[in-house]
Design a binder for these strands. Structure first.
Lengths: 368, 368
DNA sequence: CTGAAAGCGCTAACAC
DNA sequence: GTGTTAGCGCTTTCAG
């Protein structure tokens, strides 16, 4: 028990207590705790000492009430099983903390968008990061209507209504180019029957990746040989695989799976249920480059989404919007990623001019 | 743009605006939005309609200022790469949301405990969940000193100082029994050289699991054959494995790894760097039963931590502490788990009385 | 059941 | 550089 404290007593020290002890005005206390305010060094020292003695900390709610800023960012996610999101969450949280913001977390599996908006708005968050791939765009619209800066992380708006979208920005990686490069890589490495396992059909990530993939195949004079939907879920990706590999039929010799998380499920199903070898019998490519993709059990070729850059862009965008309210609205930032070649794709030399193959497979090593 | 709203205008509707439109007093508005307050149905309806028209939502900060309750729970995590934590986070968040609480997230990789306390306390959170295995107990102590209920999730306090620990409770699974059952299982299934790869040496989870493991081996007349530290990290678990399997030496025929997350690294290292088969050459057992443990590539035998029960216990404990402040302090809840047998352990029949083996290996199937 | 008045803890003008 | 004053949006006595 701390010196001078009575057990069980709530520690409700206010700035007025500190002011009294330090023999200064309440404003002096406030100024000491406001970065950039003008206080004499002597006063500041007195206040700080008194504050320390009393174990005082400014009340964030009172502060937010008067300043109109809560220093809280609402972060909305839909699920965390795909490791891409925990990784993003961790980095975002750390990055925002550095700017003096804190994260109020909303995980939106079940509750509907309207309730969510109500809850978020009660806390008068300074901004919102929407990183839920599959969540309706209404949410973003509603928040935008309340004139709170919204950044869509790893997605873009669906069909825009008649809403005020000035305050909605987005950060994503270059899904289109990603899909295209993967198509190119699979064709150039000699594959003939190339399939696609889709994520959530309405999500912008899936739409963009698939479009890029189709365009890439098309540019190479070919097209998607088979297609199934995994809806970004592990269990559904297994079913999609079984659908593409019905017994007694010819099967794909390569699959592009719309996310790494689904790709792991696909690989397990191919190997342990269907008895196929990767990459000898089938090549598999994912998207995201989550940490597991590098693991020895998978060695998954995938398209890297540069998480750090995406997080940095998100934080900067938010910061920008929070300082000068007028400008910089509605920016859409696209970060370019790159193909990471690992062992899950078979390279079948065919023609002499294989540019893509110049990027040799990097030595597979476990992260140290 | 909403009817009647001017673009770019901040939507700062207060209870007084609603009162005016509904032709009632401000108190009536407040009562309408306070569950259990006494309002006539007619008044209530008028208020609700006005609120809807104006798009009004009570300001949580103003409310918290006067009630002394923020309806925010501070949740402290250290890292999210181990899928156990994302899973816990998701469930905790959903469970607390159901009770009307929201989660302010603190991910504490870098910042020190003192800063963290300062930050948490500014928001006057109603309670704190500390789910950071490796974080110093000082943090819990400091929060307890501020008389905020603290629940340790999946850990217990280190050596207790002279502090007020009335308000610290804990929820964990039965690590001791878990370690013991694993020891028993490995011995009974015929293993001779049983090694242990430790998590963070100071963490209570590691301490308890190792103690249970040692006791279990001891009861079977044997002991740990080899030991290395993985510190709950993927990369370090690989190094620990290499240490236990130095070339030209006899190596373990079974390893108990203190967490699933490390176990995956161990399995990859054994298979793809050392060319060993699992379970033919080495058996591996983990702890946690994260979703990946079931995946075809690993089929990891592990001890299940019943996440749902742990989350439920945590939420109840918090709820209890928040209603009657005096009682129910300092409870330590232990949830019992169970061994999940999969394919990563070799069963070597030896003696006739093998009770443990009665639990036959469940048919490995992919989650549907 | 309802309204008037007071005040939660803080910062922002404004004078000095 | 400092103190005084007013008020952020809400809930809560206390009368009626």
């Amino acid at each position: 028990m701390k010196f001078g404290m009575i057990e069980g007593m709530k520690n409700n020290i206010t700035s007025i207590d500190v002011a009294r002890l330090a023999q200064v005005s309440q404003s002096a206390v406030s100024r000491t705790f406001t970065p950039g305010a003008s206080v004499a060094e002597a006063t500041r020292a007195k206040v700080l000492e008194a504050a320390l003695r009393l174990n005082y900390r400014p009340n964030a709610h009172a502060r937010s009430l008067i300043t109109g800023k809560s220093r809280i960012i609402g972060l909305v996610l839909s699920y965390l099983e795909n490791l891409f999101y925990p990784a993003a969450l961790q980095r975002l949280s750390e990055r925002l903390q550095k700017d003096g913001y804190h994260v109020l977390l909303f995980i939106n599996q079940t509750s509907n968008a309207d309730d969510l908006v109500t809850e978020i708005l009660q806390y008068h968050v300074d901004g919102i990061i929407l990183a839920a791939t599959t969540l309706s765009s209404d949410l973003a619209r509603n928040c935008a209507d309340a004139n709170i800066p919204v950044v869509l992380f790893n997605r873009v708006m669906g069909n825009s209504g008649s809403s005020n979208l000035q305050s909605v920005s987005s950060v994503r990686s270059d899904n289109l180019t990603g899909g295209k490069e993967i198509a190119n890589f699979l064709v150039k490495s000699g594959h003939q029957r190339i399939a696609y396992i889709a994520g959530n059909e309405e999500s912008s990530t899936n739409l963009e990746r698939e479009r890029g993939f189709r365009e890439g195949l098309s540019e190479n004079g070919t097209h998607i040989w088979g297609r199934a939907t995994g809806n970004y879920e592990f269990a559904q990706a297994r079913l999609a695989t079984l659908e593409l590999f019905k017994p007694g039929q010819e099967h794909p010799d390569a699959i592009f799976v719309a996310s790494d998380h689904m790709a792991f499920s696909v690989m397990d199903t191919l190997r342990f249920e269907l008895g196929l070898r990767i990459p000898e019998d089938v090549s598999v490519v994912g998207f995201d480059n989550v940490p597991q993709a590098e693991w020895g059990a998978y060695e998954l070729t995938t398209f890297n989404q540069p998480l750090d850059q995406m997080v940095e862009a998100t934080a900067s965008l938010l910061q920008e919007r929070l300082s000068d309210k007028e400008k910089s609205a509605g920016k859409n930032i696209v970060i370019s990623g790159e193909l990471i070649v690992r062992k899950s794709v078979k390279i079948i030399p065919e023609k002499p001019d294989q540019k893509v193959l110049a990027k040799s497979t990097p030595k597979p090593k476990i992260k140290t």
